[in-house]
């Protein structure tokens, strides 16, 4: 699923570690190393910086888009009182529909007199929610399948990999469309549909990476001192494949956002919220594509920028995972 095929030469250098005192420290250092090396890479990687900046911007917009109120029974509390969006996304704020940009409505209004700017701001939330949750869940499942499969081998590996193969045979978008159509267009179903397919890439790559780690001396020695399987898998091996997992997580965010936008464009977006894809769907079903450029371009550009920022970050992560890609030094 990645743009380039990452190679398997990521192993952090500090392995071994039978000395009991330093073990924990070492492990942490190993974990930090990857982050640090990304940090230092980022200093020279303009695209990665731009990506991070754009992403940070969208995250802030998403959080402050509308006030957030938490309700537990009759008790409620407003944990985030700010509202970046001047209006609610269903509020009819203009007395005249389908109007181009004005000072009051910088992105113009929809056919029903709603403020496009507010919709785009609030739509950021749906994108963030679907993107992060779906990607996190997909990568979580994928990484676990990969690790378990590679570590235990044998019939466990066989079964899990055959399942992965089957999922590889399912066309992504058609499946998501069918599933969401059948189960109903809710936020949960949209995320489930995306996750059910998206984990497959991570599973395969993590498996092959873990296979190579399994042979290394640090795993042998851990086993020799009687560490449990769980401990070896998640404490010893996991940190070494973490950079790769985060790379796949970045791409998973991109695919999840594109998938959500595509579903929304077909009118299958999560109900009760607005997303960028849904705004474009509204433009289309209002029949306003021809004239209302102010209505269709902001959400479209927002999708593009968001996904692009994730790709930029992914590319710089890729250089951590696959040092061969660092060139020009």
């Amino acid at each position: 699923m990645s743009l380039d095929t990452p190679s398997e030469s990521t192993a952090a250098q500090a392995e071994g570690g039978t000395e009991s005192i330093d073990r924990r420290k070492l492990r942490w250092r190993r974990r930090l190393n990857a982050l640090r090396s990304w940090g230092s890479l980022l200093k020279e990687d303009r695209l990665g910086q731009i990506g991070l900046a754009i992403l940070a911007f969208f995250i802030l917009v998403g959080i402050f888009a509308r006030p957030i109120t938490v309700e537990i029974g009759p008790v409620w509390s407003q944990v985030q009182p700010f509202s970046l969006a001047p209006h609610g996304y269903t509020d009819r704020v203009a007395t005249e529909g389908l109007h181009g940009p004005t000072w009051a409505h910088p992105f113009g209004t929809t056919d029903l007199g709603r403020d496009v700017l507010s919709q785009v701001i609030i739509g950021t939330r749906a994108t963030l929610i679907v993107g992060t949750i779906a990607a996190f869940m997909a990568v979580f499942i994928g990484a676990n399948v990969g690790i378990v499969s590679a570590y235990y081998g044998g019939w466990v590996d066989d079964v899990l990999m055959r399942i992965t193969d089957i999922v590889y045979g399912v066309p992504f978008l058609p499946f998501a469309i069918a599933l969401v159509f059948i189960l109903g267009a809710t936020l949960v179903n949209v995320i489930v549909a995306i996750v059910l397919i998206l984990w497959r890439g991570t599973a395969r790559v993590v498996r092959s990476q873990v296979l190579s780690h399994k042979q290394r001396p640090y795993v042998e020695s851990a086993r020799a001192i009687g560490a449990s399987d769980f401990r070896i898998m998640y404490v010893q091996i996991m940190p070494n494949v973490l950079p790769l997992i985060s790379l796949y997580a970045a791409f998973a965010v991109a695919w999840a956002v594109i998938a959500e936008a595509s579903l929304s464009f077909l009118g299958l977006g999560p109900q009760g919220m607005i997303s960028w894809g849904e705004i474009i769907y509204d433009v289309r079903s209002a029949g306003a594509l021809r004239e209302a450029w102010w209505w269709v371009f902001p959400p479209g550009i927002a999708i593009m920028l968001f996904v692009m920022s994730v790709f930029f970050i992914g590319r710089s992560l890729e250089k951590v995972v696959n040092p061969d890609l660092r060139h020009g030094k």
Binding site: L3, L47, A254, I258, A261, S262, F265, G277, I280, R284, L289, R290, W293, V296, G300, I303, M304, L305, F306, V307, M308, F311, F312, R315
Partner: peptide
């Protein structure tokens, strides 16, 4: 070139389609 290529890849099919229709048809 890299930015352009990634930009194209970041656009869902419907968005590219809409832009092309807007430009070449409308």
């Amino acid at each position: 070139g890299i930015v352009a290529v990634l930009m194209a890849r970041s656009s869902p099919e419907f968005w590219v389609g809409i832009i092309l229709v807007w430009l070449f048809v409308f």
